[in-house]
């Protein structure tokens, strides 16, 4: 089908591929004669108009056909179904072998802990670029137990990994709903209204204070931004692997956030200093001196303690807010902390 694009007239193409009109809009070409084919159209264009597009006749035609082809491939469900990723150990900063082979499956949550500078972000970066013994750590990453093919590795179209870190902010000057719509359009999704609704509900469920669809992106608080980023990544991003780098102080319901990502069949890796997040992982990778030092499986006993750690964390957040609002620390507050511990 796609091969015959050059044979169709514009009116037919605009019907079959409604987005193809955007191609001309973005080039600043208006007043298109709908009865022409793309080649006839290119011939009919004045030099002056063409000049402004930054393309010559041949390039205009070629890019138009490529544009439709590319958009059509975007519509297809991704063929990069990832069931597992494997980390084959490399070397730590002193050159000692890591001697490790780790496999993670869809739906698993892995937390990564270690002192600042130990190499947590480096491990995430190795996964992100599907390292093949060519990064400073000499680690190798496998997909579904195999060496990823070169095209998967180098073509961003097949991006496997979504990333979320504390430095990331929204920079677009848009309302929440406009922004989600734009993202959904870029994914060629049909039911945009439904997904917008869903993302906003999910995000509000995680965020402390609620926001609505007409809030400007840049006015969202830190917590609201993180919540929206996570909900959007879970519901709109195709990437089967999600890497989260130190988002602890965001003021969101971290357990809910992770649950949402896991429900969407993602492999989630979280680098963190936060006790609650560290214990959310089914497995916990401990990094020392640039290498994977050990891997701890979450025990039943540890699991038992997540709730109490979370309660303490909530308590501290409460005290922080209390002080922020001009409150005073007294016996009753301290007593309530002791009561928690018993």
């Amino acid at each position: 089908m796609v091969k015959d694009i050059a044979l169709f007239r514009m009116e037919q193409l605009f019907k079959i591929y409604p987005y193809s009109e955007d191609y001309f809009v973005s080039l600043g070409i208006n007043d298109i004669d709908h009865r022409l084919t793309i080649e006839e159209l290119a011939v009919s264009m004045q030099d002056e108009v063409l000049d402004d597009t930054g393309l010559n006749r041949e390039q205009l035609v070629e890019n138009f056909i490529l544009f439709i082809e590319k958009m059509e491939t975007l519509k297809k469900p991704p063929n990069n179904t990832v069931e597992s990723i494997t980390i084959i150990g490399g070397k730590d900063k002193s050159g000692n072998d890591e001697n490790i082979n780790l496999e993670f499956k869809v739906g698993e949550v892995i937390s990564i802990v270690g002192p600042t500078g130990s190499g947590k972000s480096r491990l995430l970066a190795d996964i992100e670029c599907l390292a093949q013994r060519d990064t400073p750590t000499y680690r190798q990453i496998l997909l579904n137990g195999e060496i990823p093919d070169i095209n998967k590795r180098f073509f961003i179209e097949n991006k496997l990994v979504a990333q979320l870190s504390q430095n990331m902010n929204f920079v677009m000057d848009l309302l929440v709903e406009e922004f989600i719509k734009l993202h959904a359009e870029s994914r060629m999704i049909n039911n945009i209204e439904k997904i917008t609704e869903e993302i906003i509900i999910c995000a509000n469920d995680m965020a402390g204070e609620k926001f609505d669809r007409n809030t400007p992106l840049t006015q969202l608080s830190g917590g609201q931004s993180r919540a929206l980023m996570i909900a959007d990544t879970a519901l709109l991003s195709l990437s089967p692997v999600v890497l989260i780098d130190e988002i602890e102080n965001a003021g969101i319901d971290r357990k809910k956030a992770i649950e949402l990502l896991v429900k969407k069949e993602k492999i989630v890796l979280i680098s963190t200093h936060d006790p609650v997040l560290a214990l959310v992982g089914d497995k916990r990778i401990v990094i020392k001196n640039g290498g994977i030092n050990k891997v701890i499986n979450l025990s039943k006993e540890e699991k038992k303690y997540i709730d109490i750690l979370e309660a303490i964390d909530k308590k501290m957040t409460g005290i922080r807010n209390h002080l922020r609002n001009g409150g005073i620390i007294d016996d009753s507050i301290i007593d309530s902390i002791y009561r928690l511990m018993q």
């Binding site: 890019n63 082809e69 961003i156 179209e157 979504a162 994914r187 980023m229 709109l236 991003s237």
Partner: peptide, 27 residues
């Protein structure tokens, strides 16, 4: 890309793809 959200990266990528469907794109 390190300072904008994942979604904005994806939207920007799409916009580059529209402008140049032929190119290989790297972040």
């Amino acid at each position: 890309g390190d300072i904008v959200s994942q979604a904005e990266r994806e939207v920007f990528l799409f916009s580059v793809k529209q402008a140049n469907p032929k190119a290989s794109i790297f972040y």
